[in-house]
Write a protein that binds this DNA or RNA. Structure first.
Lengths: 339, 339
DNA sequence: AACCTTAACTCTAACGTTTTCGTGTTGAAA
DNA sequence: TTTCAACACGAAAACGTTAGAGTTAAGGTT
């Protein structure tokens, strides 16, 4: 097992100094053509590649950006990652992905690990547990240490940094408005508990749409689900004795489960009830009926976040003020709604 | 922006040497209690954390394992990652994920980047394009340089290293056997082109099952799809004039599309046709009818791969021979088949 | 002959750590 | 008084790389 070759070894073999080797490989004019060619040939033969770790240490730059996300088994996040990857690779950056599994402790650990030299900056979406605890000291700390951070999707007002979000409220508004425009009179929302920022915002959008159309907000039509794993039962209980004709769900899973429950209750989608979800995942397209959703444009979001971060990394001199980019959503109409 | 504090800075502040600081923080008996406490207090105050890059360089170990996978928008891979993460974190390793996007070039780039000091070893599943090109020099090279590599799922016989696979053939066999046992007489398979190793193996399992049960292999019942994006049309064309009563699909997408096509052709699932897919993804559970599948146990696979790799990393002295672990699949019976 | 230029290298410091090997100061035993 | 541990600390090298500041020898200028 021949370990990777280093400049030192090449230098020894060719009986020159390390700096000569280094300069030769960089095509420095200080070195004679003869020597340069000899070195280059040797380096190629042994497939020399500079050690990134050493470079990082020397340059105090890793050319790597860290992504910390709550979970990966989630189509939205994977599309965001695609977007980040794309931009990052184009600009010569590599990407490290770490999972917090929605755990506060793991998020802290990940952040610490990556902040200690492994990356130049972060793109992150916060863990559910962190949002619940409202403890953001770890994020503030890395920012204080001079690490640029870009937050996306689940963002925190208290933390001052660049952010990329979608107009959750407006997306929800549009969805509900569509339902209203298409003759729904009694529209329910299936949302998450309020500490999940996006759930809260989407609920606000729902309410806004009702108010704008002079409809009443009926607390009985608002379901907030804590435990995703048992959402189907909760939804069944919720829908059992309500004669709703429209449902807006704040994520894909809730929408799918709602349709399942409706089938069980012998209601037809979309004839009796129209359903719109949030997040355009794999399930939405395949489901029967295919699901109308609010598209979050994850890839675009990732791209924007990466651009913001790299911008900041490469222009550290000028202190630009932080910005929050709001991306538009778009409504994808499929078969789960009346048209 | 106070950059991260270093040993040197602490040393200067406290007017001691760098080594004293380092030793103090490691609680070395060489240092007086007095000094140690002073240093520790100071370090804590300024939240000193050793720089990973420097440590990696010094120790020639990164305590990081690299994962290279073809795509992330794929539930199976995300579960594998979960499994790897879990084991790795438990054993004090971090995880870097890189995407090849099924491109050969990107796979080479990723491998080179990660091999140059960023990780101690790899866990990878090969890009489709690489399998097609049958060019594995990049992988052989990193192995030659002393990097342990564990391959999973899509593995290559020519590359000698630890491997973790599922019994694709046997999983397919069981699925088809189930169909046969439940009165299917004319069973079709929807597979991928042969250069994708798993597609080939699963097709073999399908054939084996037929042969074992004295049924004929009818090439007309075998569909091989190249382009996933237009699979639905291909499947429709394929199924149009065939009176099959059982379908085995080598992935989730094909299974779902098959059911859609069947509905369009006014066949009922499972009454008229039983369908079994491969990979237990998000869609399978939610789909109506819920999809019977061959479960690949991704998490287990990831865990096994991580264990193999870490074992090799921590026992570099003893040259163990390479092993291929074959994990069992299991059949999950849901509503898409007759029972 | 004394000086300068230039080509072609080499040396050194630096990035942040750890660790081995000094080294100077005590206090005590001989 | 000399000698020697023990103690508490510092200096230096090493990991692999790069870049600026030397160094050397050959040749050219005055």
């Amino acid at each position: 097992m021949p370990r990777k070759i280093t400049l030192k070894q090449i230098a020894k073999e060719l009986d020159v100094s390390v700096s000569t080797v280094s300069k030769s490989l960089k095509d420095s004019p200080e070195i004679s053509l003869d020597t340069k060619e000899k070195v280059k040939a040797f380096a190629k033969l042994y497939n020399y590649k500079p050690n990134n770790i050493a470079l990082s240490l020397k340059n105090r730059k890793t050319k790597t950006i860290g992504i910390i996300i709550p979970e990966i088994v989630h189509h939205f996040f994977t599309t965001v990652i695609q977007g980040i990857e794309h931009v990052a690779n184009e600009k010569g950056y590599n990407v490290i992905i770490c999972l917090s599994n929605n755990s506060f402790d793991k998020e802290v650990l990940n952040l610490e690990f990556l902040a200690n030299g492994s990356t130049d900056g972060f793109i992150m979406s916060i863990a559910k547990e962190t949002q619940q605890k409202e403890d953001y000291h770890h994020i503030k700390e890395v920012i204080n240490q001079g690490m640029p951070v870009v937050m996306f999707d689940r963002v925190i007002d208290e933390v001052i940094c660049d952010k990329v979000v979608i107009s959750d409220k407006h997306g929800a508004f549009e969805a509900v408005q569509y339902l209203i425009d298409h003759h729904c009179k009694k529209i329910a929302i299936i949302s998450t508990v309020d500490y999940v920022s996006v759930g809260k915002l989407r609920t606000e959008g729902y309410k806004d749409a009702l108010i704008t159309n002079d409809m009443e907000i009926d607390q009985d039509l608002i379901l907030k689900i804590e435990d995703v794993d048992h959402s189907e039962e909760k939804i069944e209980e919720f829908l059992k004795n309500k004669n709703v004709d429209g449902i807006f769900a704040v994520n894909e899973q809730f929408a799918v489960n709602a349709i399942k429950v409706l089938k069980k209750l012998h209601k037809k989608v979309p004839e009796d009830v129209s359903v719109i979800g949030f997040t355009d995942g794999v399930v939405s397209k395949s489901f029967i009926p295919s699901l109308s959703t609010v598209n979050q444009h994850g890839e675009e979001m990732g791209a924007k976040a990466a651009n913001l971060l790299i911008d900041r990394l490469e222009n550290e001199a000028e202190e630009q003020s932080f910005q929050t980019t709001v991306l538009d959503t778009s409504l994808i109409i499929r078969d789960s709604v009346k048209k």
